[in-house]
């Protein structure tokens, strides 16, 4: 005798709960709004899992498959990915900080001080921005060491290593340009040291100093230059180089592994 459960007649409270859950799930995930955003359900077959990586705008920089050894945490320690993640955190917190910051020598310091006292979560955002910036510099170096000591720069990945060196330079320069913006004693004197170093360049010292700092001392021209470089030019350049960097990993045959 074919036994079919009688629907709609819950016998105890567990079954009532189950029905409630199912209805809730249906309402949440099987409606036309949700379906308009996520065209297919949770990817639970190999085919749909590959498709979601290949077709999702945020995931498509990945390959759809990856060698078993590369998922091991000790192979990369996620260093490159974490560097990129730091960049994302810095972008988000940086945008929030930009709402409150005016790059003028008159107001810059008060704006930063106001973040500490007047702005809800302003200090938290500033702290996050600062510590993740330091972390990004450290992670870039660690990532470079990982790539070097695993020999991952070797052919055919030579050019991607060069792109990486460019990104190292951009990261340092991004951090350096951000250092001046609080316009406090720490900022101005640290940048003054950098100003002196730039001025010592042979043959181009004075010109280089003038291009970067807008004058022979740290003032409003230097602040607006550093601000523009820090919030616009360098992040844009870094984002482009990162796109190239990530794309080249796949074009060069994925992550390095023994031949």
């Amino acid at each position: 005798m074919a036994v079919t459960e009688e629907p709609g007649k819950p016998r105890n409270w567990q079954e009532r709960l189950q029905i409630l859950q199912d209805r809730l799930y249906d309402r949440l995930f099987h409606n036309f709004v949700w379906r308009s955003i996520f065209r297919s359900g949770y990817p639970n077959t190999p085919r749909s899992q590959m498709l979601v990586v290949a077709t999702n705008v945020f995931l498509h920089l990945h390959p759809t498959r990856i060698h078993r050894t590369h998922v091991k945490i000790t192979h990369t320690y996620c260093l490159g990915g974490l560097t990129f993640f730091m960049f994302i955190v810095l972008t988000v917190t940086g945008v929030l900080l930009m709402f409150y910051y005016v790059p003028s020598t008159e107001t810059a310091y008060q704006d930063i001080a106001a973040l500490h006292t007047n702005v809800k979560f302003g200090l938290l955002m500033r702290n996050l921005h600062r510590w993740t910036a330091h972390a990004m510099v450290i992670l870039v170096f660690l990532h470079m060491m990982r790539v070097f000591y695993t020999g991952a720069y070797k052919p055919p990945r030579e050019f991607n290593w060069v792109v990486g060196v460019t990104l190292l330079f951009l990261t340092l320069f991004l951090s350096f340009t951000g250092y001046l913006l609080p316009w406090d004693q720490l900022a101005i004197w640290a940048i003054t040291v950098g100003h002196g170093i730039a001025g010592s360049a042979p043959y181009l010292g004075d010109e280089g100093q003038f291009v970067l700092f807008g004058g022979f001392e740290i003032g409003q021209p230097a602040l607006i230059r550093f601000y523009t470089l820090h919030v616009l030019a360098l992040p844009l350049l870094a984002a482009i180089m990162m796109a190239v960097h990530f794309w080249r990993i796949r074009r060069d045959g994925g992550m390095a592994r023994p031949l």
Binding site: L124, N127, L186, W189, V193, G194
Partner: peptide
Amino acid sequence: SVFINAPLLNRANTDITPNPSKAPWYF
């Protein structure tokens, strides 16, 4: 970030040179 605050010293003053003045740590 909750427990350690980013440093903020006095407003920039070109007349008061800290001794020693140091660059950002990576330089």
